[in-house]
Amino acid sequence: MIIGILKEPNDKRVSLVPSTLKKFKVEGVEFRIQKGAGTQASYVDTKYEKYGKVTDRSEILKSADILVSINPLPVEELPLIKKGALLVAVFSPFQNQELIARIEELGLKAASLDMIPRTTIAQTMDILSSMASIAGYRAVLLAATELPGFFPMMITAAGSIKPCKVLVLGAGVAGLQAIATARRLGAIVEASDVRAAAKEEVESLGAKFVEVPGAIDKRDAGGYAVEQTAEFMVRQQEEVQKRAASSDVVITTAQILGKKAPVLLTAETVSKMKPGSIVIDLAASSGGNCELSQADTTVIHNGVKIIGNSNLPSEMPRDASFFFSNNAANYLKLIIKDGALNLDRNNEIIDKTLLTKDQT
């Protein structure tokens, strides 16, 4: 069985790194790696050559039984792929139904790593949590770079500076990492989440929990937000408006699986923020938590900079690739048995990730 590793067209990361291939001891499996696949993530071809054949992209597309990538392959490349091959990537299937249909039409299979259930047994494959942790960390560093002032309190002979105030909306994996990072940099941090269980986690990191009563709290939501009542959203937006108006940085992280991200920060709220304030919207690709966010774009409104970036892990490609690689390799070990694909739909993890029909 041949597993192909491809260079990401618009991403600095690589799906599998050399150290993972070294530990990947599955009989009957060989790797083929596209030239330069890991270069932008500091993984050079000479490291890959020890564990597989480094070759050109066309050969890999024609020969691989499994193609592993972070992002879905370009649609125009799909007809070049060996029939029956399995594509493993982050497909975001709720937003890419046409792509999945095309893959199926060409006799290919698809497995989406972002559909791995967020359960204890699947923790080692959970790419969403791995990437969210990096995104939360990087969001704070980006905010610190863009903010026209310090994060920590500064007392100098030239005068004293108050610590900046950071508001984090959504205290999942990304939110908690953002809180921890902002606190390390000396900021005063507040955070809000619809899940009651998040309060203890937020406070354990030294932040203040902003509680809005009446939230719907589903423990089986896999770390995602859940849709709330209109009454709750009004109360939440009122509370957020008060907090945001006095904040220097707002980081938003709330997403709902398969649906548009909830609007937590309205245009009216942004208008009341201080000029020079920063909004980092990690949910921009799914509609945005800020009403003014645009995916992969920076918007300035009344002096407030709104950065819509849902792909911050790509800005830390070495470690993001390492995490992704370990998660992906654990998934591959699950679906490969005796050198052949073992797509057993009786396994919950496999069943949740397979997107195309007739895969058994």
Rank of each mutant, 00 (worst) to 15 (best):
Ser63Asp: 13
Lys7Gly: 09
Arg57Gln: 12
Lys352Asn: 14
Cys290Val: 02
Asp126Glu: 08
Glu203Gln: 12
Arg243Phe: 04
Asp217Ala: 02
Leu73Val: 04
Lys53Asn: 08
Thr229Leu: 07
Gln359Ile: 14
Glu8Val: 03
Asn311Lys: 12
Thr298Ala: 07
Gln228Leu: 09
Arg184Trp: 05
Asn311Ala: 11
Met115Ile: 04
Thr360Gly: 06
Ala254Gln: 07
Asn326Phe: 06
Asp358Cys: 05
Thr120Val: 09
Glu190Phe: 06
Arg32Met: 15
Pro152Thr: 02
Ser285Val: 04
Ile278Thr: 02
Pro275Val: 04
Gln34Cys: 08
Leu185Glu: 11
Lys83Pro: 05
Gly206Trp: 10
Leu67Gln: 08
Ala244Leu: 05
Leu99Ile: 10
Pro262Phe: 09
Ala171Arg: 00
Thr20Tyr: 07
Glu200Cys: 05
Ser129Gln: 09
Pro74Asn: 04
Glu227His: 09
Asp281Val: 00
Ile280Asp: 11
Leu265Glu: 05
Ser112Trp: 05
Val263Lys: 07
Arg118Ala: 01
Ala267Gln: 07
Met125Ala: 07
Ser310Glu: 04
Asp11Ala: 02
Gly308Arg: 02
Ile251Glu: 03
Glu315Ala: 13
Leu141Ile: 15
Arg345Ala: 03
Asp281Ile: 00
Val168Glu: 00
Val189Ser: 00
Ala110Phe: 10
Asp319Leu: 12
Gly36Arg: 04
Phe209Asn: 01
Ile155Arg: 10
Thr46Ala: 08
Glu77Thr: 06
Ala320Tyr: 05
Ala157Tyr: 04
Met316His: 06
Ser204Asn: 11
Arg102Leu: 13
Asp114Pro: 00
Lys242Trp: 04
Lys337Asp: 11
Ala110Ser: 09
Glu49Ser: 14
